[in-house]
Nucleic acid binder design. Sequence first.
DNA 1: ACTTGATATTGAACACCGTTCATTTTAAGA
DNA 2: TCTTAAAATGAACGGTGTTCAATATCAAGT
Lengths: 221, 221
Amino acid sequence: MPPLPKTSQETILKVASELADAEGLRGVGVRAIAAKLQISPGTLYNVIGDIDDIILRVNERSLIGLRDALRNAAATERDPMTNVLAAAKAYVDFVRANPRRWSMLIEYTLATDKELPPWYHKTLDETIGTVDQLLRPLIAGRRDRQRAVTILWAALEGIASLTATGKLSLVSDEDPHVLVKLLISRFLGTYQSEDITEDRREAVSRPRRKPADPSARRGRA
Amino acid sequence: MPPLPKTSQETILKVASELADAEGLRGVGVRAIAAKLQISPGTLYNVIGDIDDIILRVNERSLIGLRDALRNAAATERDPMTNVLAAAKAYVDFVRANPRRWSMLIEYTLATDKELPPWYHKTLDETIGTVDQLLRPLIAGRRDRQRAVTILWAALEGIASLTATGKLSLVSDEDPHVLVKLLISRFLGTYQSEDITEDRREAVSRPRRKPADPSARRGRA
DNA sequence: ACTTGATATTGAACACCGTTCATTTTAAGA
DNA sequence: TCTTAAAATGAACGGTGTTCAATATCAAGT
């Protein structure tokens, strides 16, 4: 196949990704992309859209990359905990491999009036859904599991953020792999064991309840 | 006392904070600050410095605010776990009370070539040092505790980030208080119990060691 | 009170940014 | 070759952070 035309979404997003890898969010600008491609700034607006669209699409690709990394890591049918730990390792590896692109995903927030497009939501749900599936054998209760997913997702983002931006060295220079493993083994290790917290008790005492906000589980129907 | 002069670090940072609260990182610009104060943009450069300095100083104040909130929450001498939970609640409350200003702290990263000034490091260390003190009664080993501090700090930042930016609703609409409590009780609840990790074994085998970094325990001496 | 000198403040100017859109170029069909 | 629709352009606009010669302000010395 011939090399992609200079003016295509594919090419533009590729260049934008390279810029993000090299210089972070600050380096991704319409003029920089256009210059690197030797096209006019205006063309970007014909082909994709404004800078928000471009960055969001790059971020979506990062999300897809992470999603696939998580799936691959946990593909084999070992025991649940091993799977989760493998996925966590893959998460850390992925962030390590793409520090600036990942921190762009974390740093970038839309203007207060705009909001994230549906296709971004969809990919985000798929990625988080992967985590949910990993936890399913470990935590049966839907609500409990959703809480665990949220906490782990947030904690991994936090560790990744500190790592990627270099701020972790301010806190400690621990290996992220060690931290994540510690987090998971401690946080997840106590499920299905002795003590039951208030929240869990609540979940157990009410076996059936109506589903929560239906819009919140798009990916699974 | 007379109202602060229009041109003083205090006034400028106050206005910058207001802008941050109202419009987030995007709203904090030299021209916006100067206009609101009815002074010239150039004056900001005489009084404080460039926009990086201004934002970093606002962020430092956010850090100080959090530090004090944590200290106040854990001031009384209850049992360690209660203290930690109280501090965690204070953390969530603080972020809830200043969502945009806190997300500015998370979102803002310096250009790749620049790095954070010493005075910022100092305040950050003090704030994280507060967490370290809270964990001291629970985790004796210096290294184990440092890891726990890092993990909790990162996890709280992650949860706060999701909450403040509104991205949490994409994951789940749980109350951050519940999530944080769950995280802490699970992660911290298993210390000084049955299983001892490799790292902990290492710490136990060396019963006496010299006191940690003295600069880290300023508040309590 | 007047002058002097230092200090504080200004705002025009510069280089850059994202964005628009009338104009030009390109390419395909008849 | 002529026509026409689509694609690409780049000058122009309003915005940004930043600089710096010019100006204004003010305190001290005489």
